[in-house]
Amino acid sequence: MSTSTSFNRLTPYVFLAPAVVIMALALLYPLGYMIFGSFREWDPSQAMGESTYVGLKNYITLWNDPNFRESTFVTLKFAISVVTVEMFIGVGLALMLDRNLRGMSLLRTLFILPMMIAPVVVGLIWRYMYHPTLGIFNRGLKGVGLESVDWLGQHALLSVIIADIWQWTPFIFILALAALQSLPRSALEASRIDGATGWQQIIYIKLPLMMPVLIVTCLLRLIDAFKVLEVILVMTEGGPGLSTEILALRISRTATEFRELGVAAAMSNYLLMLLLFITVLMLVYNRVMEHRAARASRMIEESD
């Protein structure tokens, strides 16, 4: 056996090398490049070297820019409402449908369709459904003799939120269902013997036991909610006004329309810091809860 094919200390590095090279080249280097560029006045036609250093100017301008604040506010409003509603509906549906049904796998297949198709297509479908005269909603309202609603005008943010809920509630549903079905049967049996009602089982046993999975699910969904862009771009293009212009959309507009790469880079950095903050917060919370649970179980063991 030649040395090149045998196991040695270099083996893991050989396996890891391609991934490291690609991620360093196309993820980490660009991120560093972005941070570097956010301190510069930078035009798309310039190479980085030709741009001028302006210190914290981009960050300060943004901080005082009412439009940027509005965008941040819209982003937070969108992400928080979307995740809250999806968690409630998704977990609720999972609790309701956690039974032995024939055709459950078909049901799950149909449910994941919306999240598999392209965001661009989702935006297209919903833009059609919200259409003032052609859309199914206004036709329905007209059919029962009600006033038509200007969905993508007056209620743009709400309409966008509804579309996202349609697309992503199944994600929460599937994960919550998986968590439910892996719960220890013994705990549920014991509570049933003790005479717990269905609701008591849900509140005191199922939900607490599902909590770790639900927190991870919530975190994943929250991070993804900040990535949403195409659906909103196709449905409203950020309008009317700034009512649906989330940060991701504003970054892309600043870079392509206003041609201010430095400002866009600073904005990306703000968004990244926001996401980092949320991630760390959630992880710390998770760690604390785990710690507390471990201590509780230890106390129970000691008291025995």
Binding site: A26, Y29, P30, M34, P44, A248, L261, S268, L271
Partner: peptide
């Protein structure tokens, strides 16, 4: 957790 929008500027430049 990095959103594609954050990569837009540096990737375009690079």
């Amino acid at each position: 957790m990095v959103p594609p929008a954050v990569l837009l500027v540096p990737v375009f430049g690079l």
